[in-house]
Design a protein around this nucleic acid. Structure first.
Lengths: 392, 392
DNA sequence: TACTGTCCCTAAACCGGTTCAGTAAACCGG
DNA sequence: CCGGTTTACTGAACCGGTTTAGGGACAGTA
C-alpha cells in the first residue's frame, strides 16, 4: 500500500523530469534511497541500516549481500537524513563577524585556521565557516548546521552571542573571555604588548606610532562611522577587545617611561598588508614623524615597512617596526621583523579540543579558560632610536 | 548517545504530563519544535510553516501571532530538517585533496578562497571545506551536505571524481579541464611559464633550477613514495596537472634557447615558504649552482630567496628568482618578486558562479570551460645572469 | 512437553520540518 | 437563494534515514 503510493509518485516525478529534458535521454537516475536497496535485497530498511551501521547485528551473509546490492545501486546514505535522526552533524562552525573574503586575506586567520583544521580533522569533524550572510550574522547562524561553534573576534556585545546561547549551541570564544560561562582561549596580549614596548623604550624610542586593528562592526543598522578614527580611550575602557588589551600594555610601559601614548598616536586600519601601509601613510600625511611603529599585526607591520621605505626611511636606522603574531612570513621579510610571538595554531587547536569536549560529554562541564603565553622575538627591524633632531 | 536519546524521550513524556497537570518546574529546556509553536498558538504545523516561509498565505493577524509565539518560545526552524525536505542545503563545498591544515598554509589558497567566499556570499550560499577525513576524501565527500562542489587541484585520476559524479553532485573543476563534462576554470599556465622562462633567457640565464609544487597523493592504499623526488617526465606526460603544464612551458623555451631542463633541474617541494626554502637547500646540497630559480609558487620563491641568501647569494646579482601566482605579498618582499600574475580571486569567484548557475537551473546546461590569462610582472628579483665562471 | 534464551530480522514510530490536496466559511454577482 | 470563487487554514503524506520493541525459528534445558 505504502509502496504502491510511493511508486506512483516516483513515476510521476520521473516523467516530469524527462519531459523537461525533452524526453528520450538516458535515465537521469534518481539517487537511490534506503528503501530501494531494501527492496532489491529483499530485506527491511532496518536491515539495510544495520548493514551500514552495526553489521554485527546481521548474519555475515546477509550483511554482505546487502552491501553488495547497495554498491551495485550506487547507494550512499543521505547525510542530511542521518544528521536529522542522530541530531549530530559532526561539523564545527568557525564564526567570524567579518566577511569571509576579509578573513581569508588575513594571514593571522590562515594560521589560526590551520590549527582549527588540524584538530578538527584529527577528531573526525568537518569544518563550516560562518560569516555574515546578506549582512546578517544571525541569519547565517540560524541557517548553519553545526554541533558547536568556535567564535573568533566576537565580543560580548554582539547580539549573535545571545542567539547562539539561546539555541543551546556549545561555543568556545577565542581572543575574548568576556563570557565566563563559555570556555575560552586567549593569549596574554597585555604582557606581549608590554614586552614589545619595553624593547623600544630600552632602545631609546619615545616617539611611537601605534597601528591598531580596526574592529569592524557589522551590525546591519549600527553606526559604522568609525572607519578610520581610532577607538577612543573611553571605548577601550569598557570593551575587552584584543586591541584594547594590547593598547593597555603599550600605554603602561610608555607612561612609566614618561611619555604618554595619546589617541593621536594611535591609528586604526585593516589587519592586512595594505591596511598597514595605508594607516602609516595616513599618519605620515597628518605630520606624524615617529621613530618607531608598534603594529598590532605582522601584516600591518609589513605594510608599514613598505610605506616607510616609500617615504625614504631606512629600517631600522630611521625607524623601528615591531609586529604582533609572528606569522611564518615575519622571518622572511627584509629586514626580518621583530614581533611578539603568539601560538596561533595552538590557539585554534585548543579551541577545537575544548569545544569537542563540551559537545561530546553529555554532563554539563565547567567551562575552561585557557591563557597562552606570548613572547617577544627580536629580529632586525628594530634598532636604537635615531639621534634626536634627525627624525626626518 | 542511545542513553541520551532515551533520556530525551522520557523527558518529553514527562513534560507533556506536567503540562497536563498544569505544574511546571524550570526545565533543562529542550529546543522547541514546530509542533510546540503550533500547539501554543492554537494552529496547525502547516500554519507555523507558512508564517515563516510564505506569510502571504495567512491573514496578517494570524501570521503575526504565530511569529510572536515563536519568538516567545525561542523557536528557530531546524535547518537540517529544512534541508531534508527541500533537498537543498544552500551550501557549497570546496574540495581539496590535501589536508585543510596544509591548504591554509598556502597563500595561494587563501587568495582563491577569498574569491570563492566573495561570490558565495553574494549569492547567498554558505561554504563548507571538504578535505580528507581519516585519510579518506571519499569518506568526507560522502558525509558532506552540499549542493555542489568546487574542486581545486583534483585531477581526473582521483577516484573521488567518479564518486561525485555518481552522486549526481554538480561540480566545477579548477586548474584542471580533464573532464569535459564538468565546467572548469583554468589559467593559461603554459603561456605564463613561457613568459617567465623567456624573461630569464633574455637576461642570459641558461642554468636554471625549477621548484615544482609537489602533488600530494592521498589515496589511502596508494604508493606515496614520491615524497621528494620530482615527477618524472613520463608521469608528467600523461597527467595534465598544473605542474605539468607549467613545466612544459619552461622546457619549451629553454629548449629553443639550446639548453634542456632535465629531471635533475626540477625539484619538488611543498607550496609554502618553508617548502621552497627546503627545496632550494636540497638542490644546493646536491651541488646544483643555478643562476636563476623558476618557482611554481610565490611562497616557494620567497622561501628560496631566504635560503639563497643564507648561502651567501645576493638577489638578483648572483641569482635571479621568478615566482608564480602574484600573491599580495610578492610586491612586499625584498627585493620585490618578479612573478607570473594569475587572477586567483577571479578564478575562485568564476568557479562559484559557474557552479551556482549549474545548481540553480533545472535544465541540463552545457558545461563551460573558462581559461583566464596570465601575465609576467617584472619586479626586482631578476637581473642579468652573472658572468660565467663566477657562478658561486 | 513446556520453558527459556539466542539469533536474525522486521514493523512502526520517530527526527523536524514542507507540501499536497482539500475543507469550511465568507464573499459575490446574478 | 444559488453556484462559483477566494480566503484561511488543516490533516496527512513525505523527505530519507535510525531506533525501539518485538516476533518467529531454533536450540538447549527442566
Amino acid at each position: 500500500m505504502e509502496r504502491a503510493q510511493r511508486g506512483d509518485r516516483l513515476e510521476r516525478a520521473d516523467r516530469a523530469r524527462q519531459a523537461e529534458l525533452g524526453g528520450g535521454m538516458s535515465p537521469p537516475r534518481r539517487r537511490p534511497r534506503i528503501a530501494d536497496v531494501a527492496r532489491e535485497a529483499g530485506v527491511s530498511k532496518t536491515a539495510v541500516s544495520f548493514a551500514f551501521n552495526s553489521p554485527e547485528r546481521l548474519s555475515a551473509e546477509t550483511a554482505g549481500r546487502i552491501r553488495s546490492v547497495a554498491d551495485g545501486l550506487g547507494y550512499r546514505p543521505n547525510p542530511v537524513a542521518r544528521m536529522l535522526t542522530q541530531r549530530r552533524t559532526m561539523t564545527l562552525g568557525v564564526l567570524t563577524p567579518q566577511a569571509l573574503a576579509v578573513i581569508f586575506s588575513n594571514p593571522f586567520f590562515a594560521l589560526f585556521s590551520e590549527g582549527v583544521a588540524q584538530a578538527a580533522e584529527d577528531l573526525g569533524y568537518e569544518l563550516h565557516f560562518i560569516s555574515p550572510l546578506h549582512g546578517s550574522l544571525a541569519l547565517a547562524v540560524g541557517r548553519s548546521t553545526v554541533d558547536g561553534v568556535v567564535a573568533i573576534g566576537l565580543s560580548a556585545e554582539h547580539p549573535e552571542v545571545e542567539q547562539i546561547r539561546g539555541a543551546g549551541l556549545p561555543m568556545v570564544l577565542v581572543d575574548s573571555d568576556d563570557l565566563p560561562e563559555h570556555s575560552s582561549v586567549v593569549v596574554d596580549d597585555e604582557a606581549g604588548a608590554r614586552a614589545a614596548a619595553e624593547h623600544l623604550v630600552a632602545l631609546g624610542h619615545r616617539n611611537v606610532l601605534v597601528l591598531a586593528v580596526e574592529e569592524a562592526e557589522e551590525s546591519p543598522g549600527g553606526a559604522l562611522a568609525r572607519d578610520t578614527h581610532p577607538p577612543t580611550t573611553a571605548e577601550l575602557g569598557r570593551s575587552e577587545s584584543v586591541t584594547a588589551r594590547r593598547l593597555r600594555g603599550y600605554r603602561a610601559v610608555f607612561e612609566e617611561a614618561g611619555t604618554a601614548i595619546d589617541d593621536d598616536d594611535v591609528i586604526a586600519g585593516r589587519a592586512s598588508i595594505d591596511g598597514g601601509g595605508a594607516a602609516f601613510q595616513r599618519a605620515w600625511r597628518l605630520g606624524r614623524r615617529p621613530t618607531a611603529v608598534l603594529a598590532m599585526s605582522d601584516a600591518m607591520a609589513i605594510g608599514a615597512m613598505t610605506a616607510a621605505r616609500a617615504v625614504g626611511l631606512r629600517i631600522p636606522e630611521d625607524i623601528s617596526v615591531v609586529g604582533f603574531d609572528d606569522i611564518d612570513l615575519a622571518a622572511h621579510v627584509d629586514p626580518p621583523l621583530t614581533t611578539v610571538h603568539q601560538p596561533v595554531r595552538q590557539k585554534g587547536a585548543d579551541a577545537v579540543r575544548l569545544l569537542i569536549a563540551e559537545i561530546e560529554q553529555r554532563v554539563a562541564s565547567r567551562p575552561e579558560h585557557l591563557r597562552l603565553p606570548t613572547r617577544l622575538i627580536v629580529r632586525s627591524s628594530t634598532g636604537p632610536a635615531p639621534a634626536a633632531g634627525r627624525t626626518r
